[in-house]
Amino acid sequence: MARSSGLVAGLTAAALAGVGFLAYKAEASVSDMKARPGANTSPGKTAPKTPVNPLALPTGSGSGERVVYGLQSRRVWLVENKTNKVKHTFQVMPSTVNPKPGTYSVTSRAGKIPGSDGVAIEHVVRFAKADGVTIGFSAAVNGSMAAPNPKKKTGGVRMTRADGDVIWSFATVGTKVVVIP
């Protein structure tokens, strides 16, 4: 037992040393770039932006309790009311018909129904209409998140069954849904 504890401690120390070395090298590279004027920019171009955390709640996505749906990022954030913190975030597969950016409300829900594409779905949370199609979040009972047939007008924004369970508990009728580009 003591030998395995020593092995784990040794491996942990080696890993920490490796991380520290990589951090030092990264800082040295950044310092070197800062020391050379124009090294990280070209004439007429601005310096590269710091990468943004794709899981972070986008700015300008409203306030209060809400579901935020990012069309381009294909991501949903569930935001708590009092703390304005993300309770849960997950990837989705958009439908062929998308709502315009704006603020909506959950209008209705259904436990388990056939989807507009013929796939059995559950945890349906409807919030918008566009181009004559009802749009809502749902999870395929078979667990698939396949891209929809581009020749069909569908409004189901698909997610995993586990994420469907979470949004079903969170987004009751009247809950705000903010759609962002």
Rank of each mutant, 00 (worst) to 15 (best):
R66V: 09
L22V: 14
G118M: 08
F21R: 07
L11A: 11
T96S: 08
A17D: 04
T107W: 00
T107F: 04
T41W: 07
A171N: 12
W77R: 03
V68G: 12
V79G: 00
D131W: 10
D165L: 08
V106W: 09
F127M: 08
A130Y: 01
L16V: 11
T134Q: 15
K25I: 05
G62K: 06
A120I: 05
L78F: 04
G132Y: 07
V8R: 02
V79T: 07
V133Q: 04
T175N: 09
A56V: 03
W168P: 00
L55R: 13
E27H: 06
G6D: 10
M93L: 01
P58V: 08
A14M: 10
A47R: 05
A147H: 09
T46E: 09
P58E: 08
T107N: 10
K176R: 14
V97F: 07
W77H: 03
A15W: 14
R66K: 06
V19L: 14
Y24A: 15
T134V: 15
F90D: 08
K85H: 13
T103N: 12
G102C: 08
K25P: 01
V173K: 15
V133G: 01
V52G: 01
P150A: 02
V157P: 00
A9P: 00
R109W: 02
S5N: 09
A110E: 14
A15P: 00
A171F: 06
S61P: 04
N142K: 14
Y24N: 14
D163Q: 13
N40C: 02
R74D: 11
V19Y: 11
L55F: 10
S63D: 05
A47L: 11
K34P: 00
G38I: 01
P101C: 04
S29V: 05
Q91C: 00
K176I: 12
K129C: 03
S31K: 11
H88D: 07
H123E: 06
A56Y: 05
S61T: 10
I180E: 05
K45E: 15
E122G: 01
K151M: 09
K49R: 09
Q91M: 03
A147N: 10
V119T: 14
T46A: 08
P94V: 05
G164T: 06
D131C: 06
G174E: 11
G64W: 10
T89V: 09
N142L: 08
R161E: 13
A110V: 08
V67E: 04
A171V: 11
K34A: 11
R3D: 07
T12V: 15
S73Q: 15
T107A: 07
K151A: 15
P150E: 01
S73M: 06
F137P: 03
L11Y: 02
V179R: 11
L7V: 15
Q91N: 10
I167G: 06
K45T: 15
S138W: 02
S61R: 02
V179C: 08
D131F: 05
K152V: 05
F137T: 03
R126H: 06
